[in-house]
Design a protein around this nucleic acid. Sequence first.
DNA 1: TTTGTTTATTGCAATATTACGATTAATAAT
DNA 2: ATTATTAATCGTAATATTGCAATAAACAAA
Lengths: 108, 108
Amino acid sequence: MGVTKSEIFTDAQNEIATLAKAFAHPARVAILHQLFKSETCICGDLVDEIGLAQATISQHLKELKNLGLIKGNIEGTSVCYCINQDKWQEMKQLLTAFFDQDIKSNCC
Amino acid sequence: MGVTKSEIFTDAQNEIATLAKAFAHPARVAILHQLFKSETCICGDLVDEIGLAQATISQHLKELKNLGLIKGNIEGTSVCYCINQDKWQEMKQLLTAFFDQDIKSNCC
DNA sequence: TTTGTTTATTGCAATATTACGATTAATAAT
DNA sequence: ATTATTAATCGTAATATTGCAATAAACAAA
């Protein structure tokens, strides 16, 4: 018990859930927002900008990177993080398609 | 520790995270998909359709209802669940606006 | 080489989520 | 009234997530 039964769902359903998890925590939303609006996207700047410990930000960055939504370039001792635009578009398509479903019958 | 620090994020960031949680589990994705495509939206049918226990489905339905994304109408002994289209549109707008952000500078 | 800077990882504690059996509540059917 | 049906809730167990201090790793600067 307590473990998600991925095997009983379709691939599409699991994929949507996995992608949605990226946005299911305000710290990750804040990180992504920062990456969109900011000139620089150095990890350390994100730590300063958002008020969480360095280890915590690093962990959230790792999750976003694992999903492929961001990528990191090493620049000397620091790492520059950016949105992975290809993957971002792919995610956007999948989720907006889900949001744009139209109702077959509205019984209530 | 282990508790999300909602107070350090903006209302918009918290709202996006809260809404995204609706889709962050495949069972809820499956439930919503079923509500969109199905003629009937009786709780019991969802239990049959998706392979989870009645208590589990009921719990997921409660979460979706708390978010306002679905509503339930009592019909005799059964309950008919449906998408709340107003809230669905509102959610869609908020999330697609986030997805449609355009990048200021792409440094990597 | 030694020191400083920056990020990743480890280890741990606490909270949150997921799942389900058992029970309860509410209505329908007999 | 009794029984059956349906859904919500309670209690509990297990896994997942969040957060951070401490440490490690990797590189730059002196």
